[in-house]
Design a protein around this nucleic acid. Structure first.
Lengths: 238, 238
DNA sequence: CTTTGTCCTGCGGAAACCCGCAGATTTTGC
DNA sequence: GCAAAATCTGCGGGTTTCCGCAGGACAAAG
């Protein structure tokens, strides 16, 4: 068995290396990459079928790297190992996992034991292992109590990029009014109408406030924004 | 000499501990704290005069912790040790440094040597040590080529929180038009008028786009947003 | 087949935004 | 001390948001 480690922090990288060695004695080769860019290259070059991947790296983050790796070999087993359980990351990951692929999502705050167990479960037993906390986020984001639907999430991203209603309508092939309808739903879901103690009305610019709340709740994060921005420019020139 | 380490990642914490031991043999006590909250408490309890501080921790981030520590004992020597050189962090730090205080700012990507040298320089020699890269950001943010003035930065934060022009005017004791003037300056500085290739005009909502650009350029980040949000609520109820 | 629910669409208006213009005030530099 | 530069302010308008109301398309349930 060969394992590829993609992680930008040297300390975490060597810790991971150690953990892999200890948990997977049948592993005869461990390759390290220090960002998504080179991670993709290594995966392609050595046909790695087992990857431990950090999210949040410069150059090219884990989600993008995982997507291209899975696009080339959908049977690759990927264990995501991240500091955070932001809804933006969780949503980003579930968005790109191919049909039937096996993957895991463990937090860096988890114990040694949990990490090693996850390594064996995912790589050897082909079982999906999702950290309890991450699972919770996943549920909440689907259970439509406060969770956003895909439609709402997409419009949130477009708004956050700074597009006007008209621009969004054009991009999404919708009428202006429909875009505004979705925006209103979004405003409800994000409790934008809650006033800040003082009974001041008209205190908030709803459009901007919605994005602020989304950022504070980690529904959105800057890495998701960066991805969307690149996509916007690509599509814009195609 | 006694040193306090405030850092949430266990691996980085023990690495730091090691580095302090090696670089400062005259140090006879090292205390560790795993977030800003307990960092403040430890600093107060043991009257620590030397602190190594991570930025970006949950609970209470390094900037806030440093501020309260410095408020109580302005002669405390603090070495910031961070993953990022976001303009938002750099600006946040310089905003809270007391007159004549000695401090340092090193990136985690720096070498062992650099870290140890910085430890000695700041704690023993009372010299300020700012990482070259961080220094660059600092210069750029002051050199008004593309850098924002304090006034512009403050309005950016208010806008990013989702306040309306009127609300900002009230908070800042300015007329509506003055707020809008500052906004226009902001739009210029952030190149919001640049259109995305396609000659589409009216494509961007300037207010939102400005914040998006600020986030993408790391002039703003979510930790700065969180801080501002708390401040908003505190002042709102006072 | 009807009903119910969900989504899209157009219309119209109140409010907020963006901004040029021009006068008043303050700050800066010499 | 005075001129230049930078800021603050009010006015007026064009544009964009925000949203209630009302009608149409389509699918699922009774």
């Amino acid at each position: 068995m060969r394992v590829l480690i993609v992680e930008d922090d040297p300390l975490h990288r060597s810790y991971l290396h150690e953990a892999v060695r200890a948990a997977l004695p049948e592993c005869d080769l461990v390759v390290e990459a220090e960002n998504g860019q080179s991670g993709e290259i290594e995966a392609r070059k050595a046909r790695m079928e087992h990857v431990v991947m950090d999210l949040q790296m410069s150059e090219r983050n884990g989600i993008e790297a995982a997507r291209t790796i899975w696009r080339e070999r959908p049977d690759t087993k990927i264990l995501f190992w991240s500091n955070y359980s932001d809804e933006a990351y969780v949503r980003g990951v579930s968005r790109i996992v191919p049909e039937g692929a096996t993957y895991g999502y463990v937090l860096k705050s988890a114990s040694d034991e949990r990490l090693k167990l996850a390594l064996r479960s995912v790589f050897v037993e082909s079982q999906c292992v999702i950290d309890r906390e991450v699972r919770g986020i996943q549920q909440k984001s689907l259970g439509n109590a406060h969770g956003l639907t895909d439609a709402e999430y997409e419009i949130l991203v477009d708004v956050a990029l700074g597009l006007t209603d008209k621009a969004i309508a054009q991009r999404k092939r919708l009428s202006l009014r429909s875009v505004q309808n979705r925006l209103q739903q979004l405003y409800e879901k994000l409790d934008v109408y809650d006033l800040p103690d003082d009974g001041m009305e008209g205190w908030y610019n709803l459009r901007m406030r919605a994005v602020a709340v989304a950022l504070l709740r980690k529904v959105l994060n800057s890495s998701a924004l960066e991805r969307a921005e690149r996509e916007l420019h690509d599509r814009g020139s195609s």
